[in-house]
């Protein structure tokens, strides 16, 4: 098997319409995401995008590179670093850290257009680097 692929970045605008569509699709109606008045009293003072919606860009990038291998053996481990205050242009960046022991490990992060990191962590995918 060849070296693990380079994973292309994914950029997407997250605005209130997308957040509300995600709230419906993910069944997560926490008012911190969808209710301006309730969010104003919350820890961020305004509505924030769902963390899982931001994380979806990472999964999008991994799926583009690995297809169903991602759904049947991938792992993710992330910590959210800052709120995604919509509207926001988010970019997911996935960088190969190492490939050993049959596993490709990537550093993952998402940042906004100002370069502020919104989440960071790691992703792994089974990858037999010793196979021909």
């Amino acid at each position: 098997m060849s070296a693990p692929p380079v994973v292309a970045p994914v950029t997407r605008r997250i605005d209130q319409a997308r957040v509300e569509a995600y709230a419906h699709a993910a069944r997560d109606w926490n008012p911190i995401h969808t209710d301006r008045a309730a969010a104003a009293a919350g820890p961020f003072g305004q509505p924030v995008a769902h963390g899982m919606l931001v994380l979806a860009l990472v999964s999008d990038a991994m799926t583009a590179a690995f297809g169903e291998r991602w759904a049947a053996g991938g792992t993710l481990k992330v910590r959210w670093r800052a709120p995604a205050l919509q509207p926001v242009d988010v970019t997911a960046v996935v960088t190969l850290r190492r490939c050993e022991g049959g596993v490709a490990t990537y550093d993952v992060s998402c940042h906004n257009a100002a370069g502020e990191q919104l989440l960071s962590g790691t992703a792994t995918v089974p990858w037999d680097d010793a196979a021909p």
């Binding site: 926490n30 963390g51 899982m52 169903e68 991602w70 759904a71 993710l76 481990k77 992330v78």
Partner: peptide, 17 residues
Amino acid sequence: LPQGAVHSAQEFEFLAP
């Protein structure tokens, strides 16, 4: 979720389709 709750970290293992 109670007031002020934050989803701060997440791990996933995708084991099978």
